[in-house]
């Protein structure tokens, strides 16, 4: 009897887990398709507490629907009294360290969300700490970007060899180094 009850509970849990996982993983774009729209509408709200509590939240738009084409880089510059000096950089040319992928992901997320300006500022403050800049030193963040071209059909190797990225830059933040270091 206890064994039957245990088995019933396990089967119920498996069914619930599979349903919740499926409903939660449906993206906005996928829910345009009828079948996924139905799954999402009926189960999504119910699945959220479970998926969040168990840290199972997930979506899988890996390089989709189209791959990311905007390449960005952040350059941190400090005012030396007569000119701006580069004191830090996060971007594609800095892949020497472990977790460069984590830093690049962090930068992309901060870049996508304008409301996270305060966090971008913390990123600048970290450069102050790392470079030992004095409190009150002016620091600014220059955002550089270029967009990889999109084509209707594949281009030849020679076309890509002739292509060069067209970088553009703009200042996205200007502040001064704080008294409390950001580690």
């Amino acid at each position: 009897m206890i064994n039957h009850l245990r088995k019933t509970l396990i089967v119920a849990f498996c069914l619930w887990h599979v349903t919740a996982l499926t409903a939660y993983s449906v993206t906005d774009a996928m829910s345009e398709l009828n079948i996924f729209g139905f799954i999402r509408n009926t189960v999504y709200q119910k699945s959220r507490p479970y998926m969040f509590s168990m840290s199972l939240w997930q979506r899988w738009p890996l390089f989709a629907p189209d791959p990311l084409r905007r390449v960005i880089a952040y350059t941190f510059e400090a005012w030396t009294g007569d000119s701006w000096e580069v004191v830090g950089y996060i971007g594609p040319d800095d892949k020497s360290a472990f977790h460069s992928s984590s830093m690049l992901k962090l930068m992309r997320r901060l870049d996508e969300n304008e409301h996270q300006g305060s966090l971008r500022e913390r990123l600048a403050y970290r450069t102050c700490s790392q470079r030992g800049l004095l409190e009150g030193t002016k620091i600014r963040v220059i955002r550089s970007y270029h967009v990889i071209p999109r084509h209707a059909r594949p281009q030849s190797i020679s076309w890509w060899m002739q292509w060069e990225p067209h970088w553009q830059s703009n200042e996205v933040l200007s502040t001064t180094c704080p008294d409390t270091p950001v580690l």
């Binding site: 990311l68 390449v71 990889i148 999109r150 209707a152 594949p154 281009q155």
Partner: peptide
Amino acid sequence: DGTAAAAVYHHTH
């Protein structure tokens, strides 16, 4: 379109 991989290959991140 068959162009996605080339875009990924040129994303320097």
